[in-house]
Design a protein around this nucleic acid. Sequence first.
DNA 1: CCGATCGTTCAGTATTGACTGAACGCTCGT
DNA 2: ACGAGCGTTCAGTCAATACTGAACGATCGG
Lengths: 161, 161
Amino acid sequence: MDNAVQQFVERMGLICEKEGMARSAGRIFGLLLVGGRSYSLDELAEKLQASKAGVSTNCRMLEQFGMIEQVSALGDRRDFYRVREDPWEHMMRVAQSRWRDMVKVFGEVEPALPPQLSEGKRRLREAEEFHGLLIRQVDALMDTWRGMRTGAAPDPAEHAA
Amino acid sequence: MDNAVQQFVERMGLICEKEGMARSAGRIFGLLLVGGRSYSLDELAEKLQASKAGVSTNCRMLEQFGMIEQVSALGDRRDFYRVREDPWEHMMRVAQSRWRDMVKVFGEVEPALPPQLSEGKRRLREAEEFHGLLIRQVDALMDTWRGMRTGAAPDPAEHAA
DNA sequence: CCGATCGTTCAGTATTGACTGAACGCTCGT
DNA sequence: ACGAGCGTTCAGTCAATACTGAACGATCGG
C-alpha cells in the first residue's frame, strides 16, 4: 500500500478516535475516502491487517453514521463499501440529531427546576437557544454547500434563513 | 440534592460521554451549569459522590475545553469552579480547532498522493473545502450569537461573511 | 444436492481508560 | 516552625470496549 495512503489512514484513525468512535472505523473510512472506489470486506481486512469480523462490524457502524454505503456488484456475492457521495453532509445530520437531543433535555429540565435556581434556569434556556441556532446554522451551511457543488460559484455570499 | 437536578446531571453525563469525554466530566459540567454558582472541589465530590482526585482531574480537563473556569475567593484557599460566561462559544472554538487539524491533514496528504488516485485526491480537496466552510459558518454563528446576547433582537436575520 | 464462498454472530482475550485511596507538596494561620 | 487544610500525583483496581478466531447460516454455482 502506498506510503502516503498508509499515513493518512493512520491519522484518520486517530482523528476519528478522538471524535469518539473506534480507531479502526476511522482507518476504514480513511482508506475508502482516499481510495475513491469500492472495497470488499476481504480487501479492507487485508489492506488494514485486521480481522474480517471487526471490519464487518465497523463498516455497518460507519454505514449507520451515514459516512459510507454498501454497494453490490452484478454477478458478485461480496459486499462492497465506499464513501457516500457526500459523507460530510450526513455526518452533520447525525451531529444535528445529537444537538436536537440536547435541546430536548434542556427544554424538559428547565421547567422542572426549583425557582430558586433562577440562574441555572437562565443558563439552560440559553443553552437551548444556542443549540437551536447551531442546528439552523448548519442547515444554512448545507444549503451553501449543495449550492457550491451543483452550481459553480467559488465563493458563496448568500445564506438561507 | 434536588431530584430534577440529579436527573439532569446524569443525563448530561451520558450526553458528554457520547461526545467522547468522561462521564463524570459531564456530570460536573451539568451540576455547575444548573447550579449557576461556584462550587469547591469538596462540594462537587460530595454532591456527585466521587473522589476528590477524579473531580480535580476532570475539572482541569473541562477548563482546558473552555467549558468551565476556576475562580478564587478572597480569604479562601480553596479552588472554586463555575461554568464560563459563554461555555458554548468556547466549546465551538475547541471544535473549530479540531476541524482546523483535519483541514491541515487533508491539505498535507492530498499533494503527496500518487496521481492515479485522482478520485481520492478530489475527495480530499472536497473534505478540506467543506471543513473550511464549516469553520467559517461557525464564526458567523458566533457573531449572530454575540449580537443576540448583547443586543436584544429576538430573531436575527443577518449573517456575517 | 453438495461444496464453496460469503457475511455475521459469538465467546474469549487483550487493551484501553476511568476512578479511587493514599501519599505528597504547598500554602497559609497561629 | 509547626500543623491544618488544600489540590495534585501516582500506583492499583475495576469496568468497558474493541478486536480476534472459530463456528454458523445463507446463497450461489455446478
